[in-house]
Design a protein around this nucleic acid. Sequence first.
DNA 1: CTTAGTTATGCAAACGTTTGCAGAGGTTTT
DNA 2: AAAACCTCTGCAAACGTTTGCATAACTAAG
Lengths: 355, 355
Amino acid sequence: MNHNHESLSRRRAKAAAPSRPTIKDVASRCGVHPSTVSRALSPAMSHLVADDVAKRIRATAAALGYRPNITAAGLRTGRSGLVGVLAPDIADPNFPPVLGGVAEALHEAGYATIVVDVGPHGSPVELADRLIARGVDGLVLATVSLHDPVVEHCIDASIPVVLVNRTDAGKLVPSVASDDEAGIRLAVDHLLALGHRRIGHVAGPQDISTGALRRAGFEAGMAQAGVPGEEIAVEAAPGYTREAGRAAALRLLERRPDLTAIVAANDLLALGVYDALAERGLNCPNEVSVVGHNDMPYLDMLSPPLTTVRIAQREMGDRAARLLLAQIRDPDARHDHVVLAPQLIVRGSTAAPRG
Amino acid sequence: MNHNHESLSRRRAKAAAPSRPTIKDVASRCGVHPSTVSRALSPAMSHLVADDVAKRIRATAAALGYRPNITAAGLRTGRSGLVGVLAPDIADPNFPPVLGGVAEALHEAGYATIVVDVGPHGSPVELADRLIARGVDGLVLATVSLHDPVVEHCIDASIPVVLVNRTDAGKLVPSVASDDEAGIRLAVDHLLALGHRRIGHVAGPQDISTGALRRAGFEAGMAQAGVPGEEIAVEAAPGYTREAGRAAALRLLERRPDLTAIVAANDLLALGVYDALAERGLNCPNEVSVVGHNDMPYLDMLSPPLTTVRIAQREMGDRAARLLLAQIRDPDARHDHVVLAPQLIVRGSTAAPRG
DNA sequence: CTTAGTTATGCAAACGTTTGCAGAGGTTTT
DNA sequence: AAAACCTCTGCAAACGTTTGCATAACTAAG
């Protein structure tokens, strides 16, 4: 019913800041002590105040447009309601669904998320420290390498942490990831079933769990199919980018011109494989089949549409958030390592090898 | 040189929280008053304390691993160093570059960003309020419709605001956007130059500036080319999605089977146009040329590669952040409306109409 | 009618900073 | 030598909450 909105906003240049009402304003308006207001407005404490008083307080709070100052409350309680997320590259199409899952679950629990894009030159430890200085109640790390100092650092700071998508070698903290070995084996088995035997792998960075595990899955799958170790062709890309995939694929084709199929550790790498095949004048899938990993959006629009392995990205984020919340509530909770099942999506980039 | 990291972290289960050192710890270690420490550590105030004392304080602060509690400082100063970003859909590939630009510029200025994905069912006003309650120093709105209540709401709350990508009808607050009319005219002129005359438009939502302005640009371009108003074919999609684009394109083709080209208001809509053309058995570009808008990633991998209009997304975010910072520093600063120039990117989806 | 118990409220301290004010000691000016 | 002025540091209040403790007013039990 506040009809002077307009004049207020008009006058904001000259007038002192209209500064939002505080708990004291509500208290004096109601003729009660601030602490009573605090209790009345806190679901956990409101049973301590008489029903009629509580109702009156809630009414005037609403009338004044009172919103508690979360910063002040956080100072007192030691909890900020903030969670930090360290992201490898927010522009990577694989990341937003994960982030969406994280943010949604946290939002429901009353937490807000601060996302920090670490980028190729940022220091995760430094950025984690900045977030900790901001008082975040927990950290979601989507960036860690296998032996990442940031993990130890967070443990030393005794702040709840959960890894998502990638895991650390020591399994020191809880994590949620797709079953990377199984994912690649889905791809390999699919190609084997089509009749391929000479399959190469464009691997991801080997200092990252996804890169290492997917490679391991590839090699295991090939070995199990009876391919001798020395015939198993792998080229690792230094990063999950289209350009790195192109370069690795070119190296692979140079070394092994006889390949009939390539499994990429990631869809972006697979895009690079497409580029390399085009450069070499090789048709996909007629001459070389290609499989990606992750099922990033719009792969069905490529020509040919990319066969890939779908991972449960949104669920990954969701589970990670829940693990983190559990840890915030009880810092000594068990450290779970959640592994989600991947799913093969067959499209047009894979076919039986030519005669 | 802290060698008891390990034992500390091991004991964290039983021991009380190792709680980071405060300004008082540094002060008593140095034998000075906390206020002196505060001054020594604040670049703006450090000239008030003797050089040798300041140096000693900085040294012990570093030795103790002291990091100021930003929450507490924020409570005192009224500034949180936090900026909120309201995003329409974080999974939309067009958004991350904008966000990247925003976050980078703010990070450099010492601000952290809280990104909130509004989604189709979220209430921007409600979410903005939550952010304000969190004490954000400013808001970047990437979601506003032409007559969006959230704008008035933020003005009433007298919190610095800047719009990005989209603008409000009243131009009440500063904004940064691409020149949407000009962008579509680049597309139209390109098609006209190729010889097309019967061009249709799959427009975006008409309650959003990008949708309305791009449509206006389309109609102006066609009118200027001498096409009578009643022959100008437009179908608006209710959202910027592939599926909405497909449906709108089908309606358009139903009404005007004679079209030789379609301009989509957005690349996602253009993907839907591709779908519709495939369904109708129409070849692109031979039978129908298609132009998108925004130049989202990997469009060059489509078949045919999509001709589109590139907009300066990252710069958009960067400029928006700077505008917001200026407004935070001086709430009465001029309200600029920045308009960035778009650029036509010609690929394979456009060709001269058939004879 | 005391005693114990319950319920609703007030009081005041605390969270970790920042900053206006005041004062101590020293140096320059008159 | 007094006056005026720096330069540096300490004091204490304030920011807006939350919460342990005390207390007052009742109610119930003995």
